[in-house]
Design a protein around this nucleic acid. Structure first.
Lengths: 216, 216
DNA sequence: TAAAACAATCATGCGTGATTGATTTTTTCT
DNA sequence: AGAAAAAATCAATCACGCATGATTGTTTTA
């Protein structure tokens, strides 16, 4: 509270580089050795700095890790947004594939370790909540844009949410064993479903239901 | 390897009771204080037994926790199966609601703590893999039965899988904040989607797509 | 020169495996 | 059938390593 200045972006270039290396190392550690293995000493070593230097920048492991996931998410979202802006519109399959990649990335693994640890640690949870909410919102926004979806249409918002929840579930399924074959298949079908739901716009599923019983 | 007998169901009633109390306490601890907080001492205290007794039954924390999640999953699956057998067929909404409840239960929280910890610990992962695969399979089977789905029809298998992945993602979303309002809404829509996909049987989504372009 | 940034180390508490000790139950012996 | 011995079950504690916060020391930058 009083001396939290170290967590801000430092002025010195050398210091900035140290901070960045710590953040990147923390993500790597989280993704590879998990929460339990991600001690300040391990991160510092991986970043090639001393523990004292790490402590200077981040007073606690929790602070370090939270900043790291935040940093990683910003970079990743920026990359994805650039991809959206640069290319011609992505196909639905490309969008869901991109999401699938995001939620099976080392960054997601790192974030998951953090969220799960935070779920049972009140202090960490308070620290992490704003970040998790922000990341979730941004992912939603990105998906809406990528799919060119109109959320004012009933049901579309839920469909986008379902897409993200589904992809997060797929990320979970990839934790212990490589699930990519199943995921690829499933996402291909989901892209088809999305095409039906979104391209038809006004409650296409419900509209289709209503049109089906009538021919009988 | 040589003296692994303690992990099997013991013969003495007193011993059996101790074992069960440890298993139940372990699930409670995982769900409430997470992986990091679930030490043998904490579990033993919660179970009302000494650490020595806990060590007698389970040589390592990993063994205790793995056995606990296995035990909890068996109980839960049995309950769900009994519910399937006892009642008249459940509506689709009831099925997805039941799944939503399962994947936001303390048991799921406990299992998630275990899976996530195992994802970065090779030894634990080897121990946990068979269990996770079994639980996943059983959940799939239960869902197929509950929905009276015919997996020989193309696309149905993927739809069941998507349902489970979606629900797991929803479980994740419930970790840090209460997500039940959104979940209820989303699952209601998903039940409608399932009705369309499964009740229509033969590749209903693709059939619906094909019938749509033609009227134009 | 003072402040910022980085490095090294001290002091403490905690979790774990191993070990020893006590109690209860089962098996063996007479 | 009862007593003694063995095994199972449970409890307590020792020894050690590790992570952490705090503190002191050194180097770099403004």
């Amino acid at each position: 509270m009083t001396s939290r200045a170290p967590s801000r972006e430092p002025q010195q270039d050398r210091s900035r580089a140290t901070r960045r290396r710590l953040l990147e190392a923390a993500i790597d550690c989280l993704a590879s050795v998990g929460w339990a293995g991600t001690t300040v000493a391990v991160v510092a070593e991986r970043a090639g700095v001393s523990r004292g230097a790490a402590q200077h920048h981040f007073r606690t492991r929790e602070e370090l890790v939270t900043a790291a996931v935040e940093y990683g998410a910003e970079i990743r979202m920026r990359d994805m947004r650039a991809r959206l802006n640069a290319d011609s519109p992505l196909t639905t399959l490309e969008v869901v594939t991109m999401l699938g990649d995001l939620y099976t990335s080392p960054l997601f693994r790192a974030a998951l370790q953090l969220w799960v640890a935070a779920s049972s640690d009140p202090q960490l949870r308070a620290q992490v909540l704003p970040l998790e909410a922000r990341v979730g919102r941004e992912a939603h926004r990105l998906t809406v844009e990528a799919l060119n979806a109109d959320e004012s249409i009933p049901g579309v918002r839920e469909t986008i949410q379902a897409t993200l929840d589904l992809v997060r579930g797929l990320g979970l399924a990839d934790l212990l064993t490589d699930d990519s074959a199943r995921r690829t298949r499933l996402l291909a079908q989901w892209a088809t479903t999305l095409d039906a739901v979104l391209a038809r716009s006004p409650g296409s599923i419900t509209a289709l239901q209503r049109s089906e019983p009538e021919p009988h």
